[in-house]
Design a protein around this nucleic acid. Structure first.
Lengths: 209, 209
DNA sequence: ACAATAATGTACCGACTGGTAAGTATTCCT
DNA sequence: AGGAATACTTACCAGTCGGTACATTATTGT
């Protein structure tokens, strides 16, 4: 398995003239800014510095390229979500999620918002597969947070009357709303204020000072 | 001014064979489900029951048609937002907004979500104008809520340390997040749970029972 | 040196995009 | 009855979409 993990990297034949990981990064940027359907192949090729046949040879087609960029997104810019689940208390879990989202969604070095939210929210039938893939990603995050909150409830971190499913849905809604706010131009400080507002009312135990 | 309010309705010439308001309603449905760019002219024409030249004669072009459907959207399905501002307390204001959003975003008789959120969140350059128009709509709602919350603070409804701008941004983020949740398949009951979670922690005075 | 293999650049494909020209049909006004 | 005005239908336009055939170039293995 190669370092990039994308293609077995053959030993014979003309070597690839571009770095697949860097090209993916560039493609991610385009999809992030324009969405799956709004990003045209010429857009992608120009950003990636390659021609269409190279793109197709390396990544399959537009759809597969998109799915690979999402993988990259989850491992890089959006790498705050799943690690946050491992924090000691539910308060810290949501704190890291909300603050990570504020930083990532409004990072001036990246497009605003979240590609998993805005990549294919409303689109034509031809993008249905991609749209559902993103829905599944969002739901997976919600399910993971929900079970983490169930654990918190069992530990007495959250009160006995807390509803982990409702709380998880609420937090995911706020995270997704923050992404929309970011695409509307909200900056990191403004998003952090949203995070603060949520945290101020969080029913779980506060970390010790 | 005609009842539909869209075109002066000439007194001479062949009369229009379709109802502009109903056609707009159908166009709204398409834009709502597929977004501005995802909705093609054949899609729109089929739903509206008219041909392209009729569409162009009546509504200008795709962009103007979209903007007119958004106007309709704000006056019909989304008519809960601005009226909610007139409620007596900040609690009731946000309650009506959140519950209205839950009902509208997950209404089985309409496409899921909110067209002002998902109509043009990430798109190609050619849709920049529409995208910015929707951003302006979202911001306008936030500004309106903010000044309503400032009023609430002045009235002692909200505590002295409350930050209306932050609270307004927070509520808008939740509303926009609920729209995303709806497009992911959340039903009305699930969205109402989100609304409940927000209301349970609202810093303003509760209405008298 | 010479196959075998694979990536590259060019040039192309049919389908679809938003938008329109032109001719025809239907109405009102005189 | 006959203009004038407007809407409808058909057919078309250039440009762009995602995707590919083909010939060329660069590398490895023998």
């Amino acid at each position: 398995m190669s370092a990039t993990g994308v293609t077995p990297a053959p030993t014979v034949g003309r070597p690839r003239a571009f770095d697949m990981e860097k090209a993916l990064q560039k493609a991610l940027e385009v999809f992030w800014r324009k969405g799956y359907e709004g990003a045209s192949l010429p857009d992608l090729c120009e950003a990636m510095g390659i021609n269409k046949p190279s793109l197709y040879a390396a990544f399959g087609n537009k759809e597969q390229l998109f799915l690979k960029t999402i993988e990259l997104y989850e491992n890089r810019p959006c790498a705050f979500f799943y690690p946050a689940l491992e924090r000691a208390t539910s308060y810290e879990v949501v704190q890291h999620m909300l603050c990570g989202a504020a930083s990532t969604n409004a990072d001036p070095d990246n497009p605003p918002g979240c590609v998993i939210v805005q990549g294919a929210l409303a689109c034509s039938e031809s993008a249905t597969f991609v749209k559902e893939a993103l829905i599944a990603k969002r739901r997976a995050g919600e399910v993971a947070l929900c079970s983490r909150l169930e654990q918190a409830k069992a530990e007495g971190d959250l009160p006995a009357n807390a509803e982990p499913a409702a709380l998880a849905r609420y937090i995911l809604a706020v995270l997704q709303g923050m992404a929309v706010q970011a695409t509307s131009g909200a900056n990191c400080a403004e998003l952090k204020q949203v995070a603060e507002t949520v945290l101020a009312a969080w029913p779980g135990k506060r970390p010790e000072f």
